[in-house]
Design a protein around this nucleic acid. Structure first.
Length: 916
DNA sequence: ATATCGACTTGCACAAAACATG
DNA sequence: CATGTTTTGTGCAAGTCGATAT
C-alpha cells in the first residue's frame, strides 16, 4: 500500500486569492556585518567574544521580531548561536592546534574517539577538534546558549544520550545485527583538509581507493537473498515496514553494479520511446530493484497510472531483463536480514565501476552523446493560476472608503495581506510597492500618499476568509482538494523517452509582490501576472503541443530542443534577464542521473585533493599575487566550504562568496586567526573565526593592506579565473565540488567512526549528529520557530513535574522501608503502600523518561538554528547513507522520507561497503 | 578579457499533512 | 477529538558555472 511513491498528493496551493501566501514574516534580518573590522579584537577571540552576538542574523530570529538586529557583532547575546556563527566557529580551524582555548569549551565529547589528533579528519572532524579546542562558543554559539546546556554541541548531547541512556528500547526489529564493520575501510585517506595541514599522518595514501574493497565478496546466497529481500519487502505490506524497509544489502547489487557502470550509460533509457518494455530496460537497472523497488513498486504495477512508468517498468523490468534469478528470488523476510549482515562482501566490481564511472563522469552527459538529454518528450504544458476575483472590500484613504478597479484592488490586496510580515514595515518594500501600484492607479487617482492609506479592511477580510477556510469540514476540504487534483492531474506528468516522470513545477507563478531575501533593492515590486504569451514550451517533435489553457491565447513559442531538460520557461517579470523554468521533479531519471554524476565528480576529487592541497600550500608564498590569491581562495573554499562567489548586479542584495569577499569581511586576529563575517547566499550570515596557517594569515593581511573597507579582498580574482585554474587540477573541478566533497566525506567518516552497536534510535542519533556536523560546515541555518521558547518552557515544566513525581516516590520508598505511614494523597485518602521494588521500578522508569526528555530538549535547542535538510538533499551522497543503513540494519525510511527515497532511487542498490 | 545569457542546482520559509497529546 | 508539534512538500529566490556575445 502505501508504499507507492507516486502518490502525489496534492498540491495544494490554494489559489484563491492568489498570491499572497506567505503571510508571515519572512524577512530575515540580516545582520549586517558591516565592517567592523577591528572588532574582533580580542584575541582570544575565537569565540567570538563578545560580539558574539552575532548570530542573530537570521535567526534571530525568528521572524518576527528581530527586525533590526543586525549588528552582528554586537553584543547582543542573542540567543542562538546562530548558525553561522556558531557553527562555524566552532568547527573551524581545525588543524592547527587549536588548542587554544580549550578551556572554555565545553565540549566534552567527541573527539576522543576519533582520531585524536589527527588532523586528517574530514572537516567534520576537524570541527570537532576545533570545538574542542575552540570552543564552540565561538560565535554565537556558545553564548547564547550557553547558558546552560546549550552549549554543548549537539553531538555531545547525542552522544551522551546514547551512552547512558541507552538502552532504551526499541531495539526491536532490527537490532540484531552484528555490525559488520567495514572492512577495511578505511581508507581514510582522504580526509578533508583539515587534516592535512597539521599532520598528515593519517593519510594513507593510496588508500583511497577503496580499500575497502578488498574484502570480500559476498556469498552468493547472500546476494540472492538480498535482492529478493528487498523486493519482496517492498511489496510487503506496510505494516512490516520496518522490517522490510530495512535494506538489506542487496545482492543484486553486485550484479547491478556491474551494470551500473555500464548502466550509467546504457542505463538510460532507450532511445526509442515508449514502450514500456523498452524503457523498462533502460531504466531499471537491475539493481534498482532493491531500493527503488521498495518505494515505488507496487504490486500492480501497470495498473496504476499514477505510478510513473519508470517505476512500473522497473519492476517488470527487473525481472525481465536482469537476471531473473536474482530478482526473482524472494526471500523470506527473515532470511534476508541475516544474509545481509553477512554480506559485507565487497565486490571488486566496485572498484572497477568506479573507475569506469569516473571516466564517464566527466563531462559528457551520461547518457547521451553530446548534450542530448532526451529523445522523446511529451507533456501537457503548464497550468495558470485562476483569474483574480474581486472581493469588493474597500480600503480607506484619508479615512474615506475608496473605489478601486479589480486590477487596483488586486495589488492593494497583495499588500494588505502582508500586514503581519516584516516586509510590511520596510521602506524599500513599501516604496517599491507604492510606485508600482500608483502606475496601476493612474496619475489622477486620489491616492497619492502611502501614509494616508489604510488597508485594514482588506486585511480583516483576508483574516475572515482564512478562518472560513479553516472552518470547512473535512469533507469539504477533501472535496476541494480532489477538485484541484483533478484539474492538475494532466499537468503533473511528462513522458520522457517513453517513461512517465513527474513534473516538478507545472504551476505558473501567480502575481504578487516580490519578496527578495535580505536587503533586496527590488522587494515589494509587483510581479505581474504571467500570460501564455510569455511562455516558451519545449517538447518533442511530432507529439501534440499542449493546448493553451486560456482560450484565445497562445504560447510565445514552441521549441524542440533536446539538449536541455526544461519543459517550459518564461522571463522573470522582476528581472527580465532571468528565466523561470519548468523542470522534471527530483525523482525523475534525468535529475537522478545528473545528481549521481555530481557525486561521482566529487568522489573523484578524493584522488586529487592531496595534490591540490600541496599545490596551493606552496603557492601561499608565491610572488605572483594572482597566483597567491588563487591559492588562498582555494584554501578557503576547501577548508571552510565557502561558495565561489560570483559578481552580482547592483539591483540585487549585497551578498558575497569567496571571490567577492570584501576587505571588511575578514579580520586578522593575531597571531594566526581569521574572523569572517559576511552575508552569504540568501543573506545568511557567515560568522566564524578560524585558525589558519601562518602563510595564509600573512597573505590575507597583505591582500587587505591599503584597501578601503568596501574593496575586494581578492582583487585579482573572480570565479571564472578560479574555476579555470581548478579545471587544470582536475577535469571538471569547480569550486562547488569542494562543498559536496567535504560534506560527503565528513558524513562517511563520522558514520564509520561513530556508529556503534545499539538500538536503531541510537544509530539514528549518530546519523543525525553527523548530519548536523555537515550542516554546520555548510552553514545551513534556519530561523528559530516562533514557538520555540514556549516549547522549551513546556518541556522544562514537564521535566520538573517528572522530577517531583520521582522525588515523591523516593520519599515514599524510604518511608516504606522504615515502616512509616505514607500519609494522605491529594484527595485525602491514605496512600497505599507498595513493595519497595515497585517504588524502585517506578523511580527508575521516571528517571529514564527524564533522561530522554533532557536529551530531547538539548537536541531541540541545539538544532533550533541548524537546518539539516539542505545537506541531506544536496550535499550528502545518498549511497553513503544507504550503505550505512544496510550495514547497520536501519530501515532507510528512518533516514530518508518518501520523497528522498524517490529522489535517490539511483543510490538504493549500492553495496553495503560503499565508501565515498 | 569581460559581460551577458542560459540552464540548472541550492536554500530557506511557509503551508499542509501527519503525528502526538491531553 | 481538539490542539500543539513535527515532518513533508511546495514556492520561488538566489546561487553556480559553461557558453556566447561583445
Amino acid at each position: 500500500m502505501a508504499v507507492v511513491d507516486p502518490v502525489m498528493f496534492d498540491n495544494d496551493d490554494d489559489e484563491g486569492p492568489i498570491s499572497f501566501k506567505r503571510s508571515s514574516t519572512s524577512v530575515k534580518n540580516r545582520p549586517t556585518p558591516t565592517k567592523q573590522e577591528g572588532s574582533s579584537g580580542n584575541a582570544g577571540s575565537v569565540r567570538s567574544p563578545k560580539p558574539v552576538a552575532s548570530n542573530q542574523q537570521k535567526n534571530g530570529l525568528t521572524g518576527v521580531s528581530r527586525p533590526l538586529q543586525h549588528k552582528p557583532q554586537s553584543s547582543s547575546p542573542n540567543p542562538r548561536p546562530l548558525g553561522s556563527g556558531q557553527p562555524n566557529s566552532s568547527r573551524e580551524h581545525s588543524n592547527s592546534s587549536n588548542a587554544v582555548d580549550k578551556g572554555k569549551l565545553k565540549r566534552p565529547f567527541v573527539d576522543d574517539k576519533s582520531d585524536s589528533e589527527d588532523d586528517h579528519k574530514p572537516i567534520g572532524l576537524r570541527r570537532k577538534v576545533d570545538d574542542r579546542g575552540l570552543k564552540k562558543p565561538a560565535v554565537g554559539i556558545g553564548r547564547d546558549d550557553d547558558s546552560d546546556d546549550d552549549n554543548k554541541p549537539l553531538s555531545l548531547k547525542i552522544n551522551s544520550t546514547k551512552t547512558p541512556s541507552n538502552g532504551t528500547n526499541k531495539a526491536i526489529v532490527l537490532k540484531a545485527t552484528p555490525k559488520i564493520e567495514q572492512p577495511g575501510d578505511d581508507s581514510e585517506d582522504d580526509k578533508p583538509l583539515a587534516s592535512r595541514l597539521p599532520a598528515r599522518p593519517a593519510l594513507k595514501s593510496g588508500a583511497n581507493v577503496s580499500d575497502d574493497d578488498s574484502e570480500d565478496e559476498k556469498p552468493l546466497a547472500a546476494r540472492f537473498s538480498k535482492v529478493t529481500g528487498s523486493a519482496s519487502a517492498s511489496i510487503s505490506t506496510s505494516k512490516d515496514k520496518v522490517l522490510s524497509a530495512s535494506l538489506k544489502p542487496t545482492s543484486s547489487s553486485k550484479v547491478s553494479n556491474n551494470d551500473t557502470s555500464t548502466s550509467r550509460n546504457s542505463i538510460k533509457r532507450p532511445i526509442d520511446n515508449n514502450n514500456q518494455t523498452i524503457s523498462a530496460l533502460k531504466k531499471a537497472r537491475p539493481s534498482d530493484g532493491s531500493a527503488s523497488a521498495i518505494v515505488k513498486r507496487e504490486p500492480k504495477a501497470d495498473d496504476n497510472d499514477n505510478v510513473p512508468l519508470s517505476q512500473r517498468l522497473k519492476i517488470g523490468e527487473s525481472s525481465n531483463s536482469k537476471a531473473p534469478a536474482k530478482n526473482i528470488v524472494k526471500k523470506s523476510p527473515s532470511s534476508f536480514k541475516k544474509d545481509s549482515k553477512k554480506m559485507k562482501m565487497k565486490m571488486k566490481t566496485k572498484k572497477t565501476m568506479k573507475n569506469s564511472q569516473f571516466s564517464k563522469t566527466m563531462k559528457v552527459p551520461p547518457g547521451s552523446g553530446g548534450g542530448k538529454k532526451w529523445s522523446t518528450l511529451e507533456h501537457n504544458g503548464v497550468i495558470f493560476p485562476p483569474p483574480y476575483k474581486p472581493h469588493g472590500v474597500k480600503m480607506l484613504y484619508n479615512g474615506q472608503p475608496v473605489d478601486l478597479t479589480p486590477e487596483q484592488e488586486e495589488v492593494a490586496t497583495m499588500f494588505a495581506v502582508m500586514k503581519d510580515t516584516d516586509y510590511a514595515s520596510k521602506k524599500t518594500f513599501i516604496d517599491n510597492f507604492f510606485t508600482d501600484w500608483r502606475k496601476i492607479l493612474g496619475k489622477n487617482h486620489i491616492i497619492k500618499k502611502f501614509e494616508l492609506c489604510d488597508f485594514t479592511p482588506i486585511y480583516e477580510w483576508h483574516l475572515i476568509e482564512k478562518e472560513k477556510k479553516k472552518q470547512m469540514t473535512s469533507e469539504e476540504k477533501k472535496a476541494v482538494k480532489e477538485e484541484k487534483l483533478k484539474q492538475e492531474e494532466k499537468y503533473m506528468w511528462a513522458v520522457v523517452d517513453g517513461v512517465k516522470e513527474k513534473v516538478g513545477n507545472f504551476r505558473v507563478e501567480p502575481p504578487g509582490l516580490f519578496r527578495g531575501r535580505g536587503e533586496h533593492p527590488k522587494m515589494g515590486k509587483l510581479k505581474r501576472r504571467i500570460q501564455p504569451s510569455d511562455i516558451t514550451i519545449n517538447i518533442g517533435k511530432g507529439v501534440p503541443v499542449p493546448e493553451c489553457p486560456i482560450p484565445g491565447e497562445s504560447w510565445k513559442e514552441v521549441k524542440h530542443d533536446n539538449t536541455v531538460t526544461w519543459l517550459a520557461f518564461w522571463n522573470d517579470p522582476i528581472s527580465q534577464k532571468d528565466f523561470k523554468y519548468v523542470f522534471l521533479a527530483a525523482s525523475s531519471s534525468l535529475k537522478g542521473q545528473s545528481d549521481k554524476e555530481k557525486y561521482e565528480k566529487s568522489r573523484l576529487l578524493k584522488d586529487h585533493i592531496h595534490k591540490i592541497r600541496d599545490t596551493y600550500t606552496k603557492d601561499f608564498r608565491c610572488k605572483d599575487v594572482g597566483k597567491k590569491q588563487i591559492a588562498v581562495a582555494t584554501y578557503l573554499i576547501d577548508k571552510l566550504a565557502l561558495r565561489a562567489g560570483n559578481e552580482k548586479d547592483d539591483d540585487e542584495a549585497e551578498t558575497v562568496g569567496c571571490c567577492t569577499l570584501k576587505v571588511d569581511n575578514v579580520t586578522c586576529v593575531p597571531p594566526n586567526k581569521l574572523q569572517f563575517d559576511f552575508l552569504g547566499k540568501d543573506s545568511i550570515r557567515y560568522f566564524n573565526t578560524v585558525e589558519v596557517e601562518l602563510p595564509v594569515y600573512k597573505a590575507i593581511e597583505e591582500f587587505r593592506a591599503g584597501k578601503k573597507p568596501g574593496a575586494e579582498l581578492f582583487d585579482k580574482l573572480d570565479t571564472s579565473r578560479l574555476n579555470a585554474h581548478l579545471k587544470d587540477l582536475m577535469p571538471g573541478l569547480t569550486a562547488k565540488v569542494f562543498r559536496t566533497y567535504n560534506a560527503s566525506i565528513t558524513l562517511d567518516d563520522i558514520l564509520h567512526k561513530e556508529t556503534e552497536d545499539g538500538t536503531i534510535l541510537e544509530k539514528i542519533a549518530v546519523y543525525q549528529r553527523a548530519n548536523k556536523e555537515v550542516a554546520i560546515i555548510c552553514n545551513h541555518q534556519r530561523s528559530v520557530s516562533k514557538s520555540h521558547d514556549s516549547q522549551m518552557t513546556r518541556l522544562n515544566e514537564k521535566i520538573d513535574e517528572l522530577k517531583a513525581q520521582r522525588d515523591e516516590f523516593k520519599v515514599d520508598l524510604s518511608k516504606v522501608k522504615k515502616g512509616k505511614s505514607l500519609g494522605n494523597d491529594k484527595d485525602g485518602n491514605a496512600k497505599r503502600k507498595l513493595a519497595p521494588e515497585a517504588y524502585e521500578k517506578k523511580i527508575s522508569q521516571i528517571e529514564t523518561k527524564i533522561e530522554k526528555m533532557e536529551m530531547d530538549k538539548k537536541i531541540k535547542e541545539d538544532l533550533k538554528t541548524v537546518a539539516l535538510g539542505t545537506s541531506k538533499i544536496n550535499y550528502l551522497d545518498p549511497r553513503i547513507t544507504v550503505a550505512w543503513c544496510k550495514r547497520h540494519e536501519v530501515p532507510i525510511e528512518k533516514i530518508f522520507n518518501k520523497s528522498l527515497v524517490a529522489k535517490f532511487a539511483w543510490a538504493m542498490d549500492v553495496e553495503p561497503d560503499f565508501r565515498f
